[in-house]
Design a protein around this nucleic acid. Structure first.
Lengths: 206, 206
DNA sequence: CTGGTTCCAACTGCATACAGATGGCTGCCC
DNA sequence: GGGCAGCCATCTGTATGCAGTTGGAACCAG
């Protein structure tokens, strides 16, 4: 239930600012209002929807300022993850990260945005896992989920694919060299750039 | 409702591992099960209680490994906050931070654990706010809430008060000097030390 | 006395019914 | 014609009832 509604939001089926009426959602999933309500509470706690007393839940329309704070947080968290990952990744993890990264070059050359986007998600997830810190993993995953409605189109920008790949390259190299500082910085600036690329698509806050 | 139950957990009234039976909670607060259920869902999303299908919610008994990951995350987040705060705090914020810190010395000299603990909470909150990043503020606040059951007694350790004050001093100085790097490091190691001091009190995980 | 099986009580998950609140619409008054 | 007030429709918040499931207690067999 939570998942179903979250998907509607993350996939963009429900647009930021849109009201989530309990009865229509209940009808849509053919259940009663109760599970819907509970799911909305949970989504509210996760920050995906906003709730105030006696009002409909609304898909969080992150205002510019809060959106920026999330992108900044994302950059910081990525930096931390990469730094920790450089120290802690196992040999297998390093190998997988590199292999995966190398193979993604084909999508860049082919200009396959969708495929590269999928790889990109995996790549970052590997990074988060590599930090070997469950709580940080949770935080970064949640933050990413909340940001996802706002960066769907990030790879549409011309040349973004190649640049993203080059930035990944820097991160991978630093991690393979076990250079924690460099890895942290590379990941940090990588996300900073993504945030700039995505800002354009941000839904105007109210 | 959420707040009421969360308080029971944070204050230690409900102990990690304890089952949260919906009907008794409903009776306790003199409401029906419905709002209790929704509150539990929300607390589940916040990570304060664990939930699995057809089971009672249980106060999260953070296992040793996850507890460590939270303390580590806390150290990283504090470091980030202090670093950002050193750059971004307004003159008023700096002044308040210093004033507050100075005045806390009286509690150290008097050995007033309760009072110092209250000040300590304020001090760190100031730091988080000083970073001027709402999302990071949320994350660090949530993490702290989840950790609170596990560090209630941190100032009981002999000499901890004075050491904490000295560490705060380093952080304050670095921020007043606008030395972001030093502030970040000082805050990071401060929390690392707290985590060591608290580990002793961790409820044994299962 | 111990191990297993069966049954029951208690609790969770969901649905429905009702009460309270809110926002918009309509109609009246100025 | 415009503005204000009161009413009504609609939606959220809460209570209660019922069905499904689970864990444990009691009982029986070895």
């Amino acid at each position: 239930m939570v998942r179903s509604i979250a998907d509607l939001i993350v996939t963009g089926d429900l647009v930021p600012g849109e009201k989530l009426d309990e009865v229509s959602l209940a009808a849509r999933f053919e259940v009663s209002r109760t599970p819907v309500r509970e799911a909305l509470r949970e989504l509210g706690a996760m920050g995906l929807v906003g709730r105030e007393p006696n009002r409909s839940a609304v898909v969080t329309n992150v205002t510019g300022s809060y959106l920026n704070s999330m992108f900044e947080a994302m950059a910081e968290l990525e930096g931390v993850c990469a730094r920790l990952a450089a120290d802690r990744m196992t040999a297998e993890e390093r190998a997988m990260l590199e292999r995966d990264h190398r193979s993604s070059e084909q999508w860049v050359l082919a200009g396959a945005e969708e495929d590269y986007a999928a790889h990109n998600t995996d790549f970052h997830t590997r990074l988060y896992r590599g930090a070997h810190n469950d709580h940080i993993f949770e935080m970064v995953t949640q933050t990413r989920a909340r940001l996802s409605p706002f960066r769907r189109a990030q790879f549409r920008l011309p040349g973004r694919l190649a640049r993203s790949f080059a930035e990944h390259e820097r991160i991978v190299q630093a991690i393979l060299n076990r250079d924690a500082i460099a890895a942290g910085q590379a990941a940090h600036s990588h996300v900073e750039i993504v945030s700039g690329a995505s800002a354009v698509f941000a839904h105007p806050g109210e």
